[in-house]
């Protein structure tokens, strides 16, 4: 038989591995979401760069497909605890509130031009990534801070090619970040 110190150490090992399994599962799901959003953001920025007149349609399509993809991801990967539902109306409300607040800032309180819009939305999106990192793992924070910093560099130092810069920094950053999450 073992003593209480050894038993405590064994339970601590169990807790540690359970946390790692949970984080690994979270990273796996988050990586799908990041890659999906990355592809959409890359495409939308590319459309903005090549055909600015269609930018508004590209972004509405990207946002709709992005939010729809996350809802689908949730439906196909329901939470394991018994009180969770596969389709959670709260998830939809999160998107409604997220975009409503963004719209309020960019079109009601302020009147942002294309360059400001192209900076605000990634920064706003990445703020949530960074905050999520405080609870759910350093990868979220690294992706959030990294993309935010590169977005600001683009805003201040990249000229006409800003949408192209953002295609690679925001879209590419999310894709690479998502793939990196799967390897952690």
């Amino acid at each position: 038989m073992i003593d209480s110190k050894e038993a405590s150490a064994a339970l601590a090992d169990i807790d540690d591995i359970v946390q790692r399994v949970k984080q690994s599962q979270l990273y796996e799901l988050a990586s799908f979401a990041a890659v999906w959003w990355g592809l959409l953001v890359f495409a939308a920025n590319l459309v903005t760069w090549l055909w600015p007149v269609y930018a508004v349609y590209a972004w509405v399509a990207a946002d709709t497909l992005g939010a729809g993809g996350l809802v689908a991801l949730r439906i196909f990967n329901p939470p394991h605890h018994s009180h969770g539902a596969a389709f959670n109306v709260r998830l939809l409300l999160v998107f409604v509130l997220f975009f409503a607040f963004g719209y309020l800032c960019t079109n009601v309180i302020g009147h942002f031009g294309p360059r400001q819009l192209g900076t605000f939305w990634p920064l706003y999106f990445m703020l949530f990534y960074t905050l999520a990192g405080l609870w759910f793992g350093y990868a979220f924070m690294a992706i959030g801070v990294g993309i935010s910093a590169l977005t600001l560099i683009g805003y201040f130092y990249i000229g006409e090619a800003f949408p192209l810069w953002m295609a690679f920094v925001n879209g590419g950053g999310l894709i690479l970040g998502g793939l990196w999450m799967r390897r952690i």
């Binding site: 064994a10 090992d13 169990i14 591995i17 359970v18 790692r20 399994v21 949970k22 690994s24 394991h80």
Partner: peptide, 24 residues
């Protein structure tokens, strides 16, 4: 103990790939 703890953290009938288990 670590292997069983990792597998037990998953829902029933769900498993872990060998490579994932190795990393964990």
């Amino acid at each position: 103990l670590k292997i069983m703890a990792a597998l037990n953290a998953l829902p029933a009938a769900t498993g872990l790939e060998f490579s994932r288990l190795k990393k964990l």
